[in-house]
Design a protein around this nucleic acid. Structure first.
Ligand SMILES: [Zn+2]
Ligand SMILES: [Zn+2]
Ligand SMILES: [Zn+2]
Ligand SMILES: [Zn+2]
Lengths: 164, 164
DNA sequence: CTAGACCTTGTAGCCACTACAGGGTCAAGC
DNA sequence: GCTTGACCCTGTAGTGGCTACAAGGTCTAG
């Protein structure tokens, strides 16, 4: 099957597939004599796995690790769970901060009815002169390992070469 | 005041300030004979405005438009309100979709207790074999102008030259 | 044998920064 | 005057996860 057919089969665009190959998330397929990529059912399975994981918001690096874990069937699955639960925890942080932003924006929007002139607009006034931070302070997390985890993510990653 | 002092006064890093200048969000300041940027109180005000807007999650383009609107004090402020309300609406979409993801991930995580082997892990099974989309279908919005607004955002923007 | 659908590589763009490298400037202290 | 060292300058490249070309090559149905 060609790259277009693989795209049809998985709902992933051809350019994205080539991108996944470039970052070594998909293995290099065989080629025709003319240079066309030739995919097999195992590629369909792997790419579907990737697509579903990405739809759940997992990062490429998380997907990479899941794929690597999945290949060793005897390993305990604790790390798999950890990846998923960490991602849920990240989502909780993100949702909470978006809700805080939403609250701040709603208060701002409610302060103006939109009927006046710019010179009387309370939204602009607040943006120009607010003393306190409009969006509130950063949220701190009670969860034990949240800080260390987020810190370890900040570590400089070893860069992979572009095309070996 | 130098760029470092402006950064101190506003809580914005020097590199970000130079970036804002490059994209013409901050006007070019005067320079010393040696080439150092020299800022004035109006720069502090403008940069604080930008920082507060960005903390609320407004895009650079939205901030640019707010700044331009704010400069014309007699104009009606309806457009200001519109920008803020549109942003709230975008946040609602984003929050809703993150909550859907969270639900899907939680169901996934609950299906595995983390004690078994990879070969029995229901998380990996689901990612490998799910028929239905794990994250559910895209949300459609009841709001009247949501589609057109999102469509008009997709329009190709006229690109600004790099350094006039 | 030709049309045209598909494929190839490579590069650049998106957002909003952030992180250098390699140099220049400025103020204080001696 | 000279040195030190904190600050500043420009320019480029990287982040994530694609997406959109351009310029050309390949494959297949008619
Ligand atoms: Zn208003
Ligand atoms: Zn946390
Ligand atoms: Zn498991
Ligand atoms: Zn909507």
């Amino acid at each position: 099957m060609t790259i277009g057919a693989l795209g049809q089969a998985t709902g992933v665009g051809a350019e994205t597939i080539r991108y996944y190959e470039r970052i070594e998330l998909l293995p290099q397929p065989a080629r025709t004599s003319g240079g066309y990529r030739v995919y097999r059912p195992e590629h369909v399975r792997r790419l579907n796995f990737i697509r579903r994981s990405r739809e759940l918001g997992l990062s490429i690096e998380a997907v990479r690790e899941l794929l690597s874990l999945a290949s060793d069937r005897l390993r305990p699955c604790a790390r798999v769970d950890r990846l998923v639960r960490d991602h849920i925890h990240d989502l909780d942080h993100k949702i909470e901060s978006l809700q805080k932003l939403r609250g701040a924006l709603q208060r701002l929007a409610d302060s103006c009815r939109g009927g006046g002139r710019v010179s009387e607009c309370r939204i602009l006034e607040a943006l120009q002169e607010a003393e306190e931070t409009l969006a509130g302070p950063a949220i701190e997390c009670g969860q034990e390992d949240c800080q260390e985890r987020r810190a370890s993510e900040k570590q400089p990653k070893p860069r992979r070469e572009r095309r070996a």
